[in-house]
Design a protein around this nucleic acid. Structure first.
Length: 593
RNA sequence: GGCCUCAUAGUUCAAGGGAUAGAAUAGAAGUUUCCUAAACUUUAGAUCCAGGUUCGAGUCCUGGUGAGGCCA
């Protein structure tokens, strides 16, 4: 039983007895380090219910708790803060109940609604970059966190595999490619296709410049460049189902998927179901007609269909063009409904999409609610800020985009350089080393990105991102590795698995136990706010707490056998919590480094 | 023009309306006969501006300023 629940109930009971009033709630916080105590009850909010002096009230409650609650061994009152010292026995008892629990902190599986988490959802005309990485890591981590909080989770993405941008790559490949394939060129499929997208853009710009030099207006030139007209023609052919065009489209998309899959594998992420826009772009139109009948939408004179959201403080938004073709909104409405059909057990969806689409999703969710879908209440736009570079915004035109694959390789190399310098792995085989550098390099990258609150912009400094000291992934991995080293040595020494519940706890041991105790709450909080950053920062705090413990007490060198055993068991548990927390971030931990 | 985010040490990040605003990095100074020094200890340094609500505001409200985004 959670200590806060016990105390909360007791405090209410106490107040009722002493003052004859019912307290609506009790506010707790961890006691600040400069005061004696483990848990603090804030008295101020009680003043609304009980009239009087906060110090007096705190003292009376403190006395009562000390006498009647076994867990409370001491107390002190500072201003309106009632600091309680919790007995060692309570923490030992807590430790005893969790020490053999393998998924400590996780809620019962499938105890909550099933959900869909969508992330990645790239275009298929160029390789993934740093912006996608933030999206992918966030989405994957949130899916793990929701799962740990008790939800069943389906991971999905919608691949933007059709449209003018793909036609541009296809056209350029046909014009300049000379039949080049990933095999013949040795290029990763997505990079190959991206190369032709760039080639298209170059030609396009030359043509526009040419037209302008012949006296055309810039705007006109941009619309009339021959290569653009050709690409548009190609798109029309694709939509008409032209065999050759569709075949080329399928081939080139196939290359891109191979490339993407390699990147996903490197990042350690996966999906349960994929949606392709080429299959879904026609969805949603019937729903619009439906909504017209219900009066949710209205038709303008030109035949286009709109929704009026002025009563929501927004404006009017188009949902179907005058020529009857779908806009993004139409598709998204259709896709959402399709997903509920595909996964009838779900009640809730998370869309991991950048914050430039905040408005779009706000509107989408309102429309779905107005259409009367009950699950529309449980949609969440996991919106995240852009990734900036020290030089400013990433711009593909200026070549400042950080490529995902290059970045991963870089991180692995840095991990290798640092490890080689320290030279602790002489007995490792090349393969083992390679695996380890991958774990460390990706740990650095993932942690660097996930520790930041999703809604904030990230400044990605390539030099700092490979920093392995301080609040970083490798620092935490290193602590884990040290713990494993202790455990290996402990095996030789022999450690009792019986826990002596009458031990007197060292201050640092208590701190560690308090921190471990927070893990389940943190998972819940992270799930409620869809924020891996909470887990990252929690893990870092735990690691710092462990390092401090490690520095101050002897673990294997402790001569009292019972104390030694306890410390080994405690270290082991800390390792397990680190591992478990990092799993929620999609980060692996090494046994040695 | 309308709407939406963000603003905290030199820098990168924290802080469910609660105590003296925490870390990390960069700077200064220390700690290795002992369980991994990728560690630890000490030191200095910050809430964009002006009002308001509250016993109490980095946090909530209003108005500015600055950065970014969305919609025509």
């Amino acid at each position: 039983m959670d200590i806060k629940e016990v105390l909360g109930a007791k405090v209410k009971e106490t107040v009722n007895e002493l003052y004859g009033v019912a307290l609506p709630s009790v506010e707790f916080q961890p006691t600040r380090k400069d005061f004696e105590g483990d848990i603090t009850i804030v008295v101020f909010p009680m003043l609304r219910t009980i009239k009087g002096n906060p110090v007096e009230i705190g003292t009376r409650i403190g006395h009562y708790l000390q006498e009647n609650v076994a867990e409370v061994s001491k107390f002190n009152v500072v201003k309106g803060f009632l600091n309680l010292v919790i007995s060692d026995a309570h923490y030992l008892e807590f430790f005893n109940t969790i020490r053999n629990v393998t998924d400590f902190g996780h809620a019962d599986p499938n105890s909550k609604d099933a959900m869909i988490v969508e992330y990645s959802s790239p275009n298929t005309n160029k390789p993934l970059h740093l912006g996608h990485i933030r999206n992918i890591l966030l989405g994957y981590s949130v899916s793990k966190i929701l799962k740990a909080a008790g939800h069943k989770v389906y991971k999905t993405q919608i691949i933007n595999d059709r449209g003018i941008h793909i036609c541009k790559s296809m056209l350029a490949w046909r014009k300049f490619g000379g039949g080049e394939t990933p095999e013949s060129s040795g290029l990763k499929g997505d990079h190959l296709v991206g190369k032709y997208y760039v080639a298209y853009d170059k030609t396009y710009k030359e043509e526009v410049a040419g037209l302008i030099s012949y006296g055309k207006d810039k705007e006109v030139a941009e619309k009339e460049a021959p290569i653009l007209l050709e690409a548009q023609e190609m798109l029309r052919k694709w939509e008409a189902g032209d065999e050759e065009t569709v075949a080329l489209w399928a081939t080139m998309n196939g290359w891109v998927y191979q490339g993407f899959n390699e990147t996903y594998r490197n990042l350690g992420v996966d999906f349960d179901k994929l949606y392709y826009e080429s299959n879904t772009y026609l969805l949603g139109r019937e729903v619009v007609n439906d909504g017209l009948e219900k009066g949710v939408f209205f038709k303008k004179n030109d035949g286009s269909v709109w929704i009026d959201l002025t009563d929501e403080g927004l404006d009017e938004k188009i949902v179907l063009r005058a020529d009857g073709t779908a806009v993004y909104m139409t598709q998204d409405i259709g896709t959402a409904i399709q997903r509920v059909k595909d996964f009838p057990d779900i009640n809730g969806m998370v869309y991991t999409v950048g914050n430039e689409q905040d408005y779009h999703f706000k509107v989408l969710f309102i429309i779905l609610k107005k259409l009367g879908y009950s699950w529309a209440e449980k949609l969440y736009h996991l919106s995240y800020g852009m990734v900036d570079l020290p030089s400013g915004k990433m711009k593909s035109r200026e070549g400042t985009v950080v490529d995902a694959d290059d970045l991963i390789t870089n991180m692995e190399q840095t991990a290798e350089e640092i490890s080689e310098e320290l030279g602790k792995l002489e007995d490792y085989s090349e393969d083992e080393k390679k695996g380890l550098y991958h774990i460390i390099g990706l740990g650095a990258l993932k942690y660097y990105i996930l520790k930041v609150d999703p809604k904030k912009r990230i400044l990605f400094n390539p030099e700092e991102s490979v920093d392995f000291q301080g609040n970083t992934g490798p620092f935490i991995q290193y602590t884990y590795a040290r713990i494993q080293s202790i455990l290996r040595k402990a095996e030789h020494i022999g450690v009792s698995t019986v826990l002596d519940l009458t031990l007197t706890l060292h201050e640092k041991e208590k701190e560690l136990l308090k921190h471990i105790q927070l893990f389940p709450e943190k998972i819940q909080e992270a799930a409620d706010s869809y924020s891996p950053a909470l887990i990252a920062n929690y893990t870092y705090d735990l690691v710092k707490e462990f390092n401090s413990f490690y520095q101050q007490v002897s673990i294997l060198g402790e001569t009292d056998e019972e104390k030694r055993s306890f410390r080994v068991l405690l270290s082991k548990k800390v390792g397990e919590v680190i591992q478990s927390a990092f799993k929620l971030l999609g980060i692996e931990v090494p046994d040695r480094m």
